[in-house]
Design a protein around this nucleic acid. Structure first.
Length: 655
RNA sequence: GCUGUUGUAGCUCAGGGGUAGAGCACGUCAUUGGUAAUGACGAGGUCGGUGGUUCAAUUCCACUCAACAGCACCA
C-alpha cells in the first residue's frame, strides 16, 4: 500500500494534497461543515464511493450531495436494502437474494413460500419508514470469501452462498451493515438509512426467475421506486398515469380501431378505422419502397414441411410455428417468416449478376406461436404483417446496400416524428447455422457499416453492441426508437444472411459464367405493421397527424336547417380527397363536439345557419377550445395541404 | 411457458349459496339547441367455459380458457 499523500483534483480544477487514509467525509469536511453534512458519497474519477471509505488513490474527486443526479442511485440502492431488512423483520424465514437499482427505482427478489400480496406492500412500507427513521449508518466490513460463505451458510441464506460461490476465490467481499441487519453487497451506499428519505413507494409484486433463468426457481420480486424528493416521485407517478392514458389497447377501443377476443389469442380484429390507419401506413411504405427500387411480391402462407426443413426453421424455430396436417397426411407449416418464399422466387429462373441487387419486398403476413405470457395488445401478437424485404446482392454490394437501407429506415422514422434512434449490432448466438468463416465475414462488414452509420449521423444516432443476440442465420442491426414519453421500441432490423442462399442452393451467374451464391439481406423498417401502429397510437396519444387519421374531419350540424349546406361541405371535402364523416343527428353541438373529441377526430367542422348563409365553416381542432371561421374554399385548401403525407410533400417540394 | 391477480350487460364497475344491479353507451319519443354530456321512457346479462359439492351455485371447490402485471422469450 502506498503511504504517500493523496493528490485530489476538484471539479473547479484546484488540486489539494491529503494524507493517506483520508475519507470522502474528511475531504468534504475540509471544505465546509455544511458540505460534510450534505454529502452522501464521493465520485473518484467518476466512480461512486462510500463517504466513509478511505480514498485509495489520487484522482479527480467530486463531492456528491443529495441533489446530484447520481445520488438517486444510492438512494435506490439504500432503499432496496431497507426493503430487504423490512421484509425479513416481518417474515424472518424469508431468504434474500439480490436487489439492484433499475431505471426509475429498484427491486429486490425474495424466496418466500407465501407470495406477497398488495396489502403486504403497505405493511412493508410502514416498516421501511421505521428503519429509515432509525437512521442507522451504513457501515462496510470486508470479509474473506470463506468467512462470508460460512456465515451465510449458517444463516441459511442459500442464495447468498450461491452468489459467493460464483465470485473469484481470492476476492474479499463487502458486507454492509445497517443496525442489526447486514447484506452481501458491492456497494456503494449512502451514509445512513435516513438517506433514503421519504420519496419512495413500493409499486408491485411479480415473479422472477433466480438469476434470470427460466430453468431456475421462481422468486418473489418487489418493485419500488425512489427519488431524491417528493416532487420527483410525484412527477414519476404522474408520468406513469400519462403512459396509462395513452395505452394503445385502451385507445384502440375508444377510437374503434381494433379488438381482440378470446377465440383468437394474439390475433387482431381490425375495425374499419383501424384498417384505414393500417392502409395509410402500408401505402406510405409502398411509396417509400418504390422510391428505393424495391419490387413487391407475395409468397404463399402455407408451405410443405420439407421447405422449412431446408431453411432450417423446422429445426430451430419449430416450437414457434403453426403446423397443419392434411387428410392425405402431408405436413405443412404456416409461414413464420417470408425469407424462404422469397428465395424460391429468386431461384425461379436463372439470375445474372447484371440483375443484382434484387430487392424483393412483401407485406408478409406471418404467424408465430408466441408464448402466451408474451402477448401484449398490438405490440406482441401471433399473427402479424411484416414490412419485410430481402436484398439479394453480391458481397461487394453488401456494404452499400446496408447503408442504403439505413437511409430508408432513418427517413421513415423521422417522417413519423421519431428522432432519437439507437442502432445495435447483434452478433452470433449460441444456436446458429452456417460456418464460422461466414459469421466472421458478416460481422466484420456489419461492424464497418455500424461505424459508418454513427460517423455519418453527426452524433444523432447512437450505436451499441448486443453480443450473442443475432438471428440463427446471421448478425443483425436492430433499430430502436424512442417515443414521445421516452419509451424505447425495437422496430427496424437489417440482417445479413450467408446461410439461407446456401441451404436453398440459390445462385446467380457472374461475369465469368460461374455460379455464385448471392448474399441475402433481410430487412424490416416498421418491423410489424401491427406493432408499429401500436407504437404510433401511444406516441401520438391517439392524436394522429392528419394524413394518417382514419377520420380526418366530422361535419356536425347545429340545426337541421344547416343540413343541406352541411352535405355540400362533406361532398366538397370528399371530392378533394379528404376522409370526412357527417353528423347530422338531432343532438346539441356540445354533445357532438364531446363525442368526436373523445373519438380523437382531428377536425370538427360545425355548420349552423350562419355558416350556411355565409358559405363558411367553423373549424375546431382536436385539443383546442377555439374555433376559426373561414370560407369553405379556404378550409379545403388548408386541410388538403395538411393531409399530404410527408413523403409526398417532400417529393413535391423537391420538384 | 413460469409466478401472481382478474373474468358479472357494448364500456366502467357494484353485489353475492335461493335463479342479478348502477352509470355511460344503445332504442323510442319530445326537444332545433352555437363548440366536451337536453329530458322522459324502454330494451339489454343469466354472472368466461367444463365438471363437482349442495335440496339449491353466478356466489364454494377442481380443472380449463382468456386477459392483466412481471419474469423468460421476441417484430
Amino acid at each position: 500500500m502506498a503511504q504517500s499523500a493523496l493528490s485530489l483534483e476538484f471539479p473547479d480544477g484546484t488540486i489539494r494534497e491529503f494524507d493517506a487514509g483520508t475519507t470522502g467525509k474528511d475531504v468534504a469536511g475540509s471544505i465546509s461543515k455544511s458540505l460534510a453534512k450534505k454529502s452522501v458519497a464521493i465520485a473518484l474519477n467518476g466512480e461512486l464511493m462510500d463517504l466513509a471509505e478511505p480514498i485509495a488513490s489520487s484522482g479527480k474527486i467530486e463531492i456528491i450531495t443529495r441533489t446530484d443526479d447520481r445520488a438517486v442511485e444510492l438512494i435506490r440502492h439504500d432503499c432496496a436494502h431497507v426493503l430487504a431488512e423490512a421484509v425479513q423483520a416481518i417474515w424472518p424465514d424469508t431468504k434474500v437474494t439480490i436487489g439492484p437499482v433499475i431505471e426509475n427505482g429498484f427491486y429486490y427478489d425474495f424466496d418466500r413460500a407465501e407470495p406477497f400480496t398488495p396489502e403486504d406492500l403497505e405493511t412493508i412500507e410502514k416498516k421501511m419508514r421505521q428503519i429509515i427513521a432509525r437512521n442507522d449508518p451504513f457501515t462496510k466490513q470486508v470479509w474473506s470469501r470463506d468467512d462470508a460463505k460460512a456465515h451465510f451458510e449458517k444463516m441459511g441464506e442459500s442464495y447468498k452462498v450461491e452468489l459467493i460461490d460464483a465470485i473469484d476465490a481470492d476476492q474479499n467481499l463487502n458486507i454492509y451493515h445497517q443496525g442489526e441487519w447486514h447484506d452481501l453487497c458491492l456497494g456503494p451506499h449512502g451514509p445512513s438509512t435516513g438517506n433514503v428519505g421519504s420519496a419512495f413507494k413500493l409499486m408491485s409484486v411479480a415473479g422472477a426467475y433466480w438469476r434470470g433463468d427460466s430453468d431456475n426457481q421462481m422468486l418473489s420480486r418487489i418493485y419500488g421506486t425512489a427519488w431524491a424528493d417528493e416532487k420527483q416521485l410525484k412527477n414519476y407517478l404522474f408520468m406513469l398515469e400519462e403512459a396509462q392514458k395513452r395505452d394503445h389497447r385502451k385507445l384502440g377501443r375508444e377510437m374503434d380501431l381494433f379488438h381482440f377476443q378470446e377465440e383468437g389469442p394474439g390475433v387482431v380484429f381490425w375495425h374499419a378505422k383501424g384498417w384505414k390507419v393500417f392502409q395509410g401506413l402500408t401505402n406510405y411504405m409502398r411509396r417509400r419502397l418504390d422510391e428505393h427500387g424495391y419490387d413487391e411480391v407475395n409468397a404463399p402462407q402455407i408451405l410443405d414441411k420439407a421447405l422449412w426443413q431446408t431453411s432450417g426453421h423446422w429445426d430451430w424455430y419449430r416450437e414457434n410455428m403453426f403446423t397443419t396436417v392434411t387428410e392425405d397426411d402431408r405436413q405443412f407449416a404456416i409461414k413464420p417468416m417470408n425469407c424462404p418464399g422469397h428465395v424460391q422466387i429468386f431461384k425461379n429462373g436463372l439470375r445474372s449478376y447484371r440483375e443484382l441487387p434484387i430487392k424483393m419486398a412483401e407485406f408478409g403476413n406471418v404467424h408465430r406461436y408466441e408464448p402466451s405470457g408474451a402477448l401484449h395488445g398490438l405490440m406482441r401478437v401471433r399473427g402479424f404483417t411484416q414490412d419485410d424485404a430481402h436484398v439479394f446482392c453480391t458481397s461487394e454490394q453488401l456494404e452499400a446496400e446496408c447503408l442504403r437501407i439505413n437511409d430508408l429506415i432513418l427517413t421513415t422514422y423521422s417522417d413519423f416524428g421519431f428522432g432519437d434512434i439507437v442502432v445495435k449490432l447483434s452478433t452470433r448466438p449460441e444456436k446458429r447455422v452456417g460456418s464460422e468463416e461466414g459469421w466472421d465475414r458478416a460481422e466484420s462488414i456489419m461492424q464497418k457499416v455500424l461505424d459508418k452509420i454513427e460517423a455519418d449521423s453527426d452524433g444523432r444516432i447512437r450505436t451499441e453492441m448486443n453480443p450473442g443476440e443475432g438471428a440463427f442465420y446471421g448478425p443483425k442491426f436492430e433499430y430502436v426508437l424512442r417515443d414521445a414519453i421516452g419509451r424505447d421500441w425495437q422496430c427496424g432490423t437489417t440482417q445479413v444472411d450467408f446461410a439461407l442462399p446456401e441451404r436453398f442452393g440459390a445462385f446467380y451467374i457472374d461475369e465469368n459464367s460461374n455460379k455464385v451464391e448471392p448474399v441475402m439481406v433481410h430487412r424490416a423498417i416498421c418491423g410489424s405493421m401491427e406493432r408499429f401502429i401500436g407504437i404510433l397510437i401511444e406516441h401520438f396519444a391517439g392524436h394522429f397527424p392528419l394524413w394518417l387519421a382514419p377520420v380526418q374531419a366530422v361535419v356536425a350540424t347545429i340545426t337541421t336547417e344547416a343540413e343541406e349546406y352541411g352535405q355540400k361541405v362533406v361532398d366538397t371535402l370528399k371530392a378533394a380527397g379528404m376522409r370526412v364523416e357527417s353528423d347530422f343527428r338531432n343532438e346539441k353541438i356540445n354533445y357532438k363536439v364531446r363525442e368526436h373529441s373523445l373519438a380523437k377526430v382531428p377536425v370538427i367542422i360545425a355548420i349552423g345557419a350562419r355558416e350556411a348563409e355565409e358559405g363558411t365553416v367553423s373549424i375546431r381542432r382536436l385539443g383546442s377550445k377555439h374555433q376559426t371561421n373561414m370560407t369553405l374554399e379556404e378550409a379545403v385548401a388548408s386541410l388538403t395541404e395538411e393531409a399530404i403525407a410527408p413523403d409526398l410533400k417532400r417529393k413535391r417540394d423537391a420538384s
